[in-house]
Amino acid sequence: MTTKPRLRVGRVLLPGVLAVGLFGLMALIVLNTSFGGSQGFPESIAITSELGYAMFQLDELQSTAGSIPNTESFLAAFFLIAVVLDAALDGAIVLAKREEGGKPVVALPSQRDDAEPARSATGRETVADGGSDSTESVTTTGSDADSATDSTAAGNGNDDNDGDGNTGGDA
């Protein structure tokens, strides 16, 4: 169990030497390189607005006089990034979602609305799959809870021995 970040010394730091070495090497190279002066941006132009124009392809609005040359428009890229973000969000949800017994675990289940229809529709299969029905067994009546725990104990869906309990629950 990793808890509080703590700098451990000793052999774990050995790979860190690589990072430091890389920095030293790159710094050496950079300091040995003469870049010359920067071109800079014209004084008269608001860079932020120019960025916006470029990003949304508002070519007409871009300033012309003494403007920054060669700014392409990035509408397509912007759109693609939007899609990627969206996909990442969906992916995060999919990854974070917890399923138990083929049903997503709801963080704050509304007991009265959810439980009954879900039970009548999928209750039997859920039990038959062998997953544990812990959330439902809390919400339902005694006989159902009984059946659910029994099935769990019986293992993979072999709930014939407790058939009457289940039928009662379905009815």
Binding site: P15, L18, A19, L25, M26, I29
Partner: peptide, 16 residues
């Protein structure tokens, strides 16, 4: 990652 970095350092040294 360490292998990657080591390789990169080696490459830099060589090219440099």
């Amino acid at each position: 990652a360490a292998l990657l970095v080591a390789g990169f350092i080696g490459l830099l040294l060589l090219l440099g």
